[in-house]
Amino acid sequence: MHAASAFTLSGRDLLGIEGLIASEITGLLDLAEEFVELNRQVEKKRTTLRGRTQINLFFEASTRTQSSFEIAGKRLGADVMNMSVGSSSVKKGETLVDTAITLNAMHPDILVVRHHASGAVALLARKVDCCVVNAGDGAHEHPTQALLDALTIRRNKGRIQGLTVAICGDVLHSRVARSNIILLHTLGAKVRVVAPSTLLPSGIESLGVEVFRTMEAGLDGADIVMMLRLQRERMAGSFIPSVKEYFHYFGLDEAKLRRAAPDALVMHPGPMNRGVEIDSAVADGPRSLIREQVEMGVAVRMAVLDTLARKLPNA
């Protein structure tokens, strides 16, 4: 049907970027490019997942990731069911593993899972027979976010190899940062992290990043400035003194952005805290890729679902 249709991943699931090799990442990105074009047509439907059941199991609230996976599944022809924590039996004390076993008995083909604990999606994947996509587990990984970020970068810069990418903000609690660091490192980018020391995990250097404690130094000559969301509960007192001080030193505004390369582009996984980690003028400015990231999200998730479905029984 299309050129990349012979492409597959080595595993049944997509639990993280860690473990993927460069050719698997670029294979997914190439396939996603095709879906970008498809999504801009009036007729957006494919039939790859016809007859398949996709369950979006979200133990943690999410609007954009969940809707992105839902649209991706539907455009590929799957029957998509959304299940979120508020309406599920998890609130009644059922454990994650019991939930997995229960859902598994309903014979879904694809489970898309988000959970607040690191490793929870991998735990669930061991208990089910279908393929599992990690839509974010704790502070561990968020692989489709890293893939959509990579696709966005590649489409705008034409490459990833050799670019300098500065990832700024709450690296400590960020699964987006971890997945991005691993992916960009695998594809040959120079990755920097920029954060106050309280928001950096100890030993982060071992992931192959260069660590900066000021935006001025960290953004110097960067091709991509990737901002991270600061969780509200971490804003006052525990990790940083105040929002005001954080924005002063680490909020991305026009002045700080001038340190970066003249053609530097700005990204944010969303949802943004305007005036906390990013200034509105930058977020809505000409160098912002934030809206394009959302568009790429659907295409990348279609590529992931399409690829994993090829390895399903009777595919």
Binding site: S118, G138, A139, H140, R178, P201, S202, G203, S206
Partner: peptide
């Protein structure tokens, strides 16, 4: 340490 950072724990 580094391993905790990797696991996101």
């Amino acid at each position: 340490g580094a391993f905790a950072a990797r696991l996101g724990l």
